[in-house]
């Protein structure tokens, strides 16, 4: 497996603000990689370093096998980027911007361009100043998706889209995956990442705190269990990895470390299981687990 993006120990400060604090990130070629974190965690800063717009203070970054700072323009022909804030030139139409950006990259597929315009329901004859936020985002998305490139870098691409268009976006990314294009999708929308991404990196205060497939990550967390038993359970409280145990007669509710699920099941089975509901942790719970302690301390704003 080759890697489209490898970042290790990346540091970046703006004045006294430490935006990136030894960030590691690896995106394999052909995968859709979710880059997850709240506003100000350092997602955009990482992406800007990868695009050679910012120079990292320390650490290494490699993009498509090259140095993002020195070989910027050469590498950029092989990728397309959708910024989080899309601003268009007031006097250019959306269609003109799409064509211009496509030509400045490695070229674009005119058939796919028209198809995307139709699917995103975007009028390409309107001038930049008259588009709403969502429509400006669509212009950048169409330009990126229609481009003939290996890598898509999308920075919160759906923040201005309505649910209908978000669905179109998900289908488009699904198609990109099938074409084996690599996608780095930064987002704070958990359901989107959960639905689309092969692997996920969770970033917190300029560091990646968790990385892996959703299954890997779930493995590290708790599954919630509700069971109705034939008899009163016993010995549950002594089991390793069982939390928030709540026993009411024959009914049991608890959470268990997913790695230690087996022990709990055996213990429950010993009392005879009449019904069982097991819920894997949602990404939201995963996410909150990493951010819970942040609520107490203010997060430094970066950007």
């Amino acid at each position: 497996m080759t890697s489209a993006i490898v970042v290790s120990g990346l540091h970046k400060s703006y004045g006294s603000t430490h935006a990136l604090d030894g960030l590691d990130l690896e995106v394999a070629t052909g995968e859709v990689h979710g880059f997850l974190g709240p506003n100000g965690a350092g997602k955009s800063t990482t992406i800007r370093v990868l695009l050679g717009l910012l120079k990292g203070d320390d650490g290494d970054a490699s993009l498509l096998g090259g140095d993002p700072w020195h070989d910027a323009a050469k590498l950029h022909r092989r990728l397309a980027y959708v910024p989080g804030d899309v601003n268009l030139w007031p006097n250019l139409t959306g269609g003109e911007v799409i064509d211009l950006l496509g030509r400045l990259r490695g070229g674009q597929d005119p058939k796919k361009r028209d198809d995307l315009l139709r699917r995103f329901d975007l009028d390409p004859t309107k001038k930049g100043r008259t588009y709403s936020k969502g429509n400006r985002q669509k212009v950048a998305l169409v330009a990126a998706l229609a481009s003939d490139v290996e890598l898509l870098i999308l920075d919160e691409p759906t923040s201005g889209l309505d649910p209908l268009m978000e669905e179109v976006f998900r289908q488009c990314i699904e198609e990109e995956r099938q074409r084996d294009r690599t996608v780095l999708l930064s987002s704070h929308i958990l359901s989107e990442v959960e639905a689309l991404c092969d692997r996920i990196s969770i970033i917190r205060r300029g560091k990646v705190v968790e990385t892996g497939t959703l299954a890997d990550l779930r493995h590290l967390t708790r599954t919630s269990i509700q069971a109705e038993l034939a008899a009163s359970p016993n010995g549950l409280a002594q089991l390793p990895g069982v939390h928030s145990l709540d026993v009411e007669g024959n009914r049991v509710r608890c959470e268990v470390d997913t790695a230690l699920l087996d022990g709990l099941m055996k213990q429950l089975a010993a009392s005879g299981i009449k019904s069982l509901v097991a819920q894997p942790p949602t990404l939201e719970e995963l996410f909150l687990r990493h951010y819970e302690d942040d609520a107490a301390e203010p997060v430094a704003a970066t950007r």
């Binding site: 800007r48 695009l51 050679g52 717009l53 910027a72 323009a73 050469k74 950029h76 022909r77 990728l79 980027y81 910024p83 899309v86 950006l101 400045l104 990259r105 490695g106 950048a140 870098i153």
Partner: peptide, 9 residues
Amino acid sequence: EPLLATGVT
């Protein structure tokens, strides 16, 4: 930014 993220140096 979007221009500098293309092949433009």
